[in-house]
């Protein structure tokens, strides 16, 4: 019983890491007034870059850093379109979602002899109790990936910066009334650029946390929709760091339930079980969330001099 419980908790935490990182990026981006529907694309390029750099250098940490850079670069494209060119942010986001996975697989074919699957990295992300593993059953069961505390600390930092510092106040104000922020001398464009780039970096790292910690290689289905689920978590979590975090944990928990119920001699078809996390999400949305309140200026390009 205890082991089952720990098992569920472990899977919950591990599954929620990529979602959490990507969703936090989404929160930062949308709080600053830029809709980022391109998270999926940024995660994909991060997932590939992380796995590829991890394989060639043998270092998962380098992989993680480069994944962040790759996601950030792709996010810059989104920033250029949506901030400088005042493009429709949804359209630009869709473009990112097309370019990201396309580029990831294109590069994979070039660097890995025509395969869309990369060669596994020599060593996955370390676990918390790497040295104590296998010695104690309970310790072994709660032996989480290092990415779990990492993602939690990012949640804490994001919350702290957003709600306890002047930068956070500026970012939040940007999403509600950019002209007011402009009038006190803060550059709307520069701040939004930073936020969009940050969201790309986080999404990229989130993608790499799939291909470096959960599995050990990039495959075309490595990300498959997690960016969109992260997007849902942003809305579900009412655009708040901890809200998004709990939404991601909830989703991870639903996936863990599937693993548990689906295990050994289950009578329910696995295909039906797989629907559970999604059905639960819809159900909870109907029961608890109601009208969600997005940042007011989110999605609207800012033009100096406009009110």
């Amino acid at each position: 019983m205890l082991n089952n419980l720990l098992f569920i908790l472990t899977i919950t935490f591990i599954n929620s890491v990529p979602l959490t990182l990507a969703a936090l990026g989404g929160v930062i981006c949308e709080k600053s007034g830029v809709v980022n529907i391109g998270i999926e694309g940024m995660m994909s390029i991060g997932a590939f870059t992380g796995a590829a750099v991890g394989y060639y250098t043998g270092s998962v940490w380098l992989g993680l850093i480069f994944a962040g850079l790759a996601g950030g670069l792709l996010a810059l494209l989104h920033a250029i379109a949506s901030i400088t060119f005042q493009a429709d942010q949804t359209v630009s986001g869709i473009a990112i979602n097309l370019i990201g996975p396309g580029l990831a697989m294109f590069l994979s074919r070039i660097f890995f002899a025509g395969a869309t699957t990369t060669i596994p990295v020599p060593q996955k992300f370390p676990k918390i109790f790497s040295s104590l593993a296998n010695k104690h059953e309970i310790l072994n069961n709660i032996n989480l990936d290092m990415t779990v505390p990492l993602s939690f600390s990012v949640v804490l930092i994001t919350w702290f910066v957003m709600y306890k510092t002047k930068w956070g106040l500026r970012i939040r104000a940007l999403g509600e009334h950019p002209a007011a922020v402009d009038s006190v001398g803060v550059s709307v464009y520069r701040t939004r650029y930073i936020c969009v780039a940050l969201s790309g970096i986080l999404a990229g790292i989130g993608g790499a946390s799939v291909t470096l910690a959960i599995v050990s290689q990039f495959t075309p289905s490595a990300i498959s929709g997690q960016g969109f689920i992260a997007l849902a978590a942003v809305i579900f979590g009412k655009w708040k760091p901890f809200g998004a975090y709990f939404a991601c944990l909830f989703f991870g928990f639903a996936q863990a339930l599937v693993v548990l119920i689906g295990g050994e001699g289950s009578v329910i078809s696995s295909d039906l079980l797989m629907m559970l996390p999604y059905l639960l999400t819809v159900l909870i949305l109907i029961l608890f969330v109601g009208r969600s309140s997005a940042p007011k200026a989110s999605g609207k390009p800012y033009q100096r001099g406009s009110r």
Partner: peptide
């Protein structure tokens, strides 16, 4: 996959040529 990139880039430019 170069085709996905082409389509993505087209959509990207469609987004920015509005301006």
């Amino acid at each position: 996959e170069i085709i996905n990139i082409v389509i993505g880039v087209i959509v990207f430019f469609i987004a920015i040529t509005r301006i």
